[in-house]
Design a protein around this nucleic acid. Structure first.
Length: 461
RNA sequence: GGCGACGUAGCCAAGUGGUAAGGCAGGGGUCUGCAAAACCCUUAUCCUGGGUUCGAUUCCCAGCGUCGCCUCCA
């Protein structure tokens, strides 16, 4: 079974053949300047599923994800809030963990931070200057794009024609408009480190190149991030890393996730039109949000819609319903369900093998749920349990752990049981009005009553 | 201006050169004291106009529309 991954660099689906064991995977993390929004959730959840699926497929994965915990925006935001920039980014780094843990995004094995990588960054910049790929000006150190012949390959900007009408700030000292800062000299700012070029801080792109080399080495198998990072960030990362190490290509597979759109435009901190993850999680369970975000292919844009989210919630409740399905004690074992389980696993895997097609995989899981419900009345308890285990296992690969809402105070249970028992007596006495009244009243309190052939079940809404 | 993505049912969303997964909603049933849950049946010819082909929603061209990158961005 081979896995195909669409590689941004080539624009094609390629057979996944990692060069490293464990697989080296780097995901561009957040600049912790504000709370994580749905766009972050989309990217990190899809990257999480890629990692989970590789692990499901038998690979070991070494996953590294950075925090760009100091940059111009963080400093701006902190100053405006009259806060220390380091505290500000630390606070938002913690917010990231809090939210992503709730979303069951597996933690990376390492989380390098810019502020902890300054010496290595300075070394890398020195190395780039020595090798003629960078030069010093009065404002800092710049990478010389012209010194890297394949600059622009990732994003398809192989010539500088495209920059003609671009809004690029003019800097007289820069040799080329494409050049970018590796080190920004800043003698008076609130945050700075000493360097051979004066007190200052790293430019935006160099940190990723450095931290990748520090944690994973000169070659990695998978590099992920949002598609808005392709240019210039990832383009520059390639130039910096490959110019320094001569390792080409330093990334085997570039994977980029589509953007979340809201009100017809990209969700972003900078434009202010973002919905925080925490906000959404106050309305739906983490699993529902995951299911919603995974119901679109990772490369596609997603127009956030509160209506679609609600629709997903209803669908999710159907998945939960599958867990309540029971086989028949007196039914003999038969292989109908296990056969279906094998088929569904195959469909699931072929979907995921095809560039991690989560929407198709989810479709297969829904179908399997329906099959379980349909066959349960004529299947043994063992058959149904086995099928449900596959159902649960496949959802787990997507990071979705089905669970019933917890009874927050377990001592309400005897009272509900008592009401159910009383209601049962009323039903046996044909006092339907009273029995229905109890059912309705409990429903108002968030307790769902369902009468089945085997008796009455209840659960919390 | 340059580069790129997308346009599939009421909503969300897969997919294929030979008449289109799945979810939600709707309609009709089965089951149930009623209901709920569950199950069954049912609801699209794929933006427009050309072209290639025996045949295109799927390939090519043009147009219209939406979005992204080129500045910070996941």
């Amino acid at each position: 079974m081979t896995i195909l991954i669409e590689n941004t660099r080539t624009g094609r689906k390629e057979v996944f053949e990692p060069r490293n064991d464990p697989v080296r995977m780097y995901v561009c993390g957040m600049t912790p300047k504000d709370l994580p929004h749905l766009g972050h959730a989309f990217m990190f959840i899809h990257m999480d599923v890629i990692r989970r699926y590789l692990e499901y497929s038998g690979y070991s994965v070494h996953h590294v994800q950075n925090f760009t915990d100091i940059d111009d925006k963080i400093i701006d935001r902190a100053i405006k809030a009259d806060r220390d920039p380091m505290d500000w980014s630390q606070e938002h780094t913690e917010a990231y963990f809090k939210v992503m843990d709730r979303l069951k995004v597996l933690r990376a094995h390492e989380f390098p931070r810019v502020t902890e990588s300054i010496p290595a960054i300075i070394q890398d910049v020195q190395q780039l200057i020595r090798s003629g790929h960078a030069y010093v000006t009065s404002t800092g150190v710049y990478f010389d794009a012209g010194s890297f012949p394949t600059y622009g390959e990732l994003s398809g900007r192989t010539s500088d024609d495209g920059l003609a009408g671009a809004r690029v700030a003019v800097d007289e000292e820069k040799k080329d408009v494409r050049d970018w800062a590796l080190w920004k000299v800043d003698s008076t700012g609130p945050i700075g480190w000493e360097s051979p070029w004066g007190r200052g801080r790293p430019g935006w792109h160099i940190e990723c190149s450095t931290m990748i080399q520090e944690t994973l080495g000169s070659h990695i198998d998978i590099h992920g991030g949002g598609i808005d990072l392709v240019f210039p960030h990832h383009e520059n990362e390639i130039a910096q890393a490959e110019a320094a190490t001569q390792e080409t290509p330093f990334v085997s597979y570039w994977t980029h996730t589509g953007l979340i759109l809201t009100d017809g435009e990209k969700m972003a901190h900078s434009s202010g039109n973002f919905t925080t993850v925490t906000d959404v999680l106050s309305k739906v369970a983490p699993d529902v949000l995951r299911l919603y975000l995974l119901s679109v292919h990772y490369r596609s844009p997603l127009h956030f819609s509160a209506l679609a989210l609600q629709q997903t919630k209803t669908g999710y409740e159907r998945l939960l319903g599958v867990l309540r399905t029971r086989g028949q004690d007196e039914s003999p074992d038969n292989n109908a369900l296990s056969k279906s389980g094998l088929e569904i696993r195959k469909t699931f895997e072929s979907s995921m093998n095809d560039d991690f097609n989560t929407p198709r995989a989810i479709g297969a899981i829904y179908e399997f749920g329906r099959t379980i419900n349909r066959l349960a009345p004529t299947s043994s308890v063992t058959n149904v349990t086995e099928a449900k285990n596959i159902f649960i296992e496949l959802l787990e690969v997507l990071g979705i752990t089905l669970y019933e809402p917890e009874t927050n105070s377990s001592n309400i249970e005897p009272y509900i049981n008592m009401l159910v028992a009383v209601r049962q007596q009323l039903r046996e006495a044909n006092k339907w009005d009273l029995a229905d009244q109890i059912r309705d009243d409990l429903a108002d309190l968030g307790v769902i009553i369902e009468d089945t052939a085997d008796g009455t079940d209840w659960r919390l809404a």
